[in-house]
């Protein structure tokens, strides 16, 4: 009934001078659809503008002001300071350290995750026909679990003497370090955990990609006498290029924001060696430096956007 009441004005908007033929009926149909579409879009649009699109712009605006915690109740009574927050962030030694750590986490973590994911996908696709779904579900399990909980567990796995990892390493004669207390090993520990938790997600996508490649491709390679590795490297990997692109972008975006891992496992230490940009942004927010935190989050946002764009360009060509 609401569409009947809305039909009139909407139809007028589409065609103000109705013709006697089938035209008015047609524009009436379009009007009804337009009205229905906006009714259906309205709740989303309101929530989306208020809680996503608005804050995206708000964050940008805030990053050019001197807003602090004391301005919380009067967010519009602040002064513009131009690019001061960006200058401050980029010349802050600790922020640079956090940026370096984040780059470290991404540059090592993303390729490692994809290699493990691809290896697992090939293993399941080629070798494990029986119980394949069991393995697929098993490898995917960590992806659905809370990073906070996983980080708590891994703190015990990585404990120096009573931990699971060093015990297992001890069996083969390796004296493992005190992972999380070492400036050298803390970051690799976080990367190791991230790979463990996330490879299942990329693996599922790779599996779908592999299953989409026709058998004739492999058979052609076999006829030409190419070894299994060469078939994989020169026939399968190029065909997986779009999938690899996609998983690297999605994994990269996630890793650039890593936060829970240092929050729970190291609090950014030792000596800021695992402090991430997200973690530092959160700390500045906690200190009440709202506009500085906003500028830091925007730097991260721009880096994410640029890297995503570059990855698409890079992998699309060739």
């Amino acid at each position: 009934m609401s569409s009947a009441t809305l039909k009139g004005p909407a139809a007028q908007a589409v065609g103000p001078t109705p013709r006697p033929s089938s035209k008015p009926r047609r524009s009436g149909a379009v009007g009804r659809q337009t009205a229905a579409a906006w009714i259906l879009a309205l709740p989303f649009a309101v929530l989306f503008l208020a809680f996503t699109a608005g804050p995206v712009l708000g964050s940008l605006g805030m990053s050019f002001t001197d807003m602090k915690q004391r301005d919380l109740r009067t967010p519009f009574a602040v002064n513009g300071v131009g690019f001061d927050n960006y200058v401050k962030a980029l010349s802050d030694e600790t922020f640079r350290k956090a940026a370096f750590n984040t780059a470290y986490f991404v540059v090592i973590g993303v390729p490692l995750t994809l290699v493990v994911a691809l290896a697992a996908a090939v293993l399941l696709d080629k070798g494990v026909k029986k119980f394949q779904s069991l393995f697929r579900v098993g490898y995917y399990l960590p992806v659905v679990t809370s990073i906070v909980a996983v980080a708590v567990i891994w703190r015990f796995v990585l404990a120096p003497d009573s931990g699971l990892l060093n015990t297992v390493l001890g069996w083969i004669g390796i004296d493992g370090p005190n992972w999380l207390a070492s400036k050298t090993w803390a970051m690799p520990s976080l990367i190791m955990m991230a790979v463990w938790r996330n490879f299942g997600s990329a693996m599922i996508i790779f599996l779908a990609g592999l299953q989409g490649i026709p058998h004739t491709v492999e058979e052609a390679g076999q006829l030409d006498g190419a070894s299994a590795w060469k078939r994989f490297r020169y026939l399968i990997v190029p065909l997986l290029r779009p999938t690899i692109l996609f998983t690297s972008v999605v994994t990269g975006i996630g890793y650039l924001q890593f936060f829970e891992e240092p929050f729970v496992m190291t609090q950014g230490g030792p000596l800021n060696s695992t402090l991430s940009v997200s973690m530092y942004t959160y700390q500045q927010f906690g200190f009440g430096n709202y506009s500085l935190a906003a500028s830091m989050s925007y730097i991260l946002f721009v880096v994410i956007a640029v890297l995503t764009f570059l990855q698409f360009r890079l992998l699309r060509e060739k």
């Binding site: 804050p55 995206v56 805030m62 975006i253 989050s297």
Partner: peptide, 16 residues
């Protein structure tokens, strides 16, 4: 906005 991280919006969202 599919890829906008929560990190980007949380400060103004908190104020709001």
């Amino acid at each position: 906005t599919l890829m906008v991280p929560g990190m980007v919006t949380f400060v103004p969202l908190f104020v709001l």
